[in-house]
Computed example of a mutant assay.
Amino acid sequence: MLPAEITTVRLRLTLPGVADVPAMIALANDPVVEEMTLTMPYPYGEADAVAFINRANVSRKEGSAFMYAIRLKGVDEFMGGVGLHIDPKYGYGELGYWMGAPFRGKGYVTEAVGALIDLAFETTGLVRIQAMTRDHNHASGKILLNNGMQREAVMEDHTIKNGEVQTVIQYRILRREWTK
């Protein structure tokens, strides 16, 4: 099981809580977040934030997912989220993340994703971590490449979002490729 809090050079990754709901709503109600993510609802309301927090708590107890709020060290402000969904039967994890507009372009997501990859390989038996990005989300692809992941596949017509068929790019890092 991954810890409830992870620290990096600049960040604290913590469990999301009820106090984060106003910031989650404000930051997630951004057309860019909606456009670049596969599963974030839009508009994003209080019920969505509360459901996310509940899922984060239940899945942590089950050991099926570990979701974190991204915060600067010494600051409780919610900036975005990062998580890892684990399939123990098949030995892989799926990364997901998003960042609020005021905090983009500063390397915070790259740092959070790197910490989560390292911790997952250090503390679990996963053999693979993967992530999917929308095909036009080049910034997200760069985050994954900067963390040692490789572009693995173009998955055409993979998902339907808002009634439109979406192509996604899949990235992966294998345990045997990972170096800390």
Rank of each mutant, 00 (worst) to 15 (best):
R176E: 13
N29D: 05
D76K: 10
G96C: 07
Y44L: 03
R55W: 09
A47T: 10
L119D: 01
I86R: 04
Y97K: 06
D87I: 10
G148V: 11
V109W: 06
Q166G: 03
A56M: 01
V127F: 08
M1W: 00
M132E: 15
G17C: 14
M155K: 11
R12A: 12
G141S: 13
E177S: 13
G125N: 04
I25G: 00
V154D: 12
E164A: 12
R71E: 13
M24P: 00
H136Y: 12
W178H: 12
G114E: 10
E46Y: 04
I117M: 05
F121I: 03
M1C: 04
R128Q: 05
S59D: 13
A139Y: 07
F66E: 05
E111R: 09
P31C: 13
D20I: 04
Y171F: 15
R12Q: 14
P88M: 00
R55T: 13
G63W: 01
D118A: 15
E177Y: 09
G80K: 08
V165D: 09
T159W: 06
E77L: 04
M99A: 08
E122Y: 03
K142F: 02
E5Y: 11
Q150K: 13
M36A: 07
D118L: 10
V58P: 00
I53A: 00
H136D: 14
L119V: 07
P16R: 02
V33T: 15
T124P: 00
M67C: 11
G81I: 02
Q130M: 11
V82I: 15
P16C: 08
E62A: 13
P3M: 03
G80R: 06
T39D: 13
E62V: 02
A101H: 05
T124S: 09
R104A: 09
P102N: 14
M79H: 11
T14H: 02
L15S: 15
E94M: 05
L119Y: 08
G91R: 12
V168H: 03
S64P: 00
T123N: 04
R71P: 01
I173S: 08
Y92W: 01
L15D: 11
D48C: 07
V127M: 10
I160A: 02
G100R: 12
T39W: 06
G148H: 07
T7A: 08
I169F: 11
R10Q: 11
E35V: 08
F52R: 03
V58F: 08
K61I: 05
K161M: 15
G91P: 00
Y44S: 05
R176F: 04
L11Y: 04
L72W: 03
L27W: 01
A101M: 11
G148E: 09
A112E: 10
R10M: 09
A49S: 12
L84F: 10
P3R: 05
H138L: 12
G83R: 03
M79E: 08
T167M: 06
V32G: 04
W98H: 11
F121R: 00
P102G: 07
I53W: 02
G105S: 11
Q150L: 08
R175E: 05
V165F: 06
F66V: 12
M1R: 02
T179P: 02
L119N: 10
H85F: 01
I173Y: 05
E77K: 10
N29R: 09
L144Q: 06
K73S: 14
L72F: 09
F103E: 15
F103L: 13
V168Y: 02
L145I: 15
G141W: 08
K89E: 14
H85R: 14
G96P: 01
L38W: 07
M149P: 00
R172D: 04
T110N: 13
